[in-house]
Amino acid sequence: MIRIARQLHRNLRAEGETAYPDECCGIMLGTVDAEGTRSVTELHPMLNARESGERYHRFRIEADDILRAERLATGNGLEIIGFYHSHPDNPAVPSDYDREHALPWYAYVIVAVEQGRARRVRCWQLAEDRSRFLRERMHTLA
């Protein structure tokens, strides 16, 4: 399960709407407790590094940005909890392309944006055998 503050959840949705019809993307930093529950405490919006003509259905966050985020997190006692992106005019369900480029443990949050309006927000985690994504419960905190 991951926990996220309601305001950050709103921010996620707003980013998806702002980026529409392109995909937004970003990095989630946070903490992990002794039971393994992850809490998102910071969202770091990232530039979608894909070519402009591809951003409507693809996103990429460059390794340089991940390295910077990893160092920022470590310096603040946090970890990279996962990543978020939007699916314009498509459901908040991971694609095969998402799966091929994923790692286990990370939380992958997808915001479905229909005609510019954010709809469902879902969280997923890659199975350790890489065969599929598993739905992960997302608890929104007041």
Binding site: C25, F83, P88, P94
Partner: peptide
């Protein structure tokens, strides 16, 4: 360091 990529796939036309 992973680079992170993904997206909704190739279904549907470009905007």
């Amino acid at each position: 360091v992973p680079s992170i990529a993904g997206g909704r796939g190739i279904c549907g036309p470009a905007p």
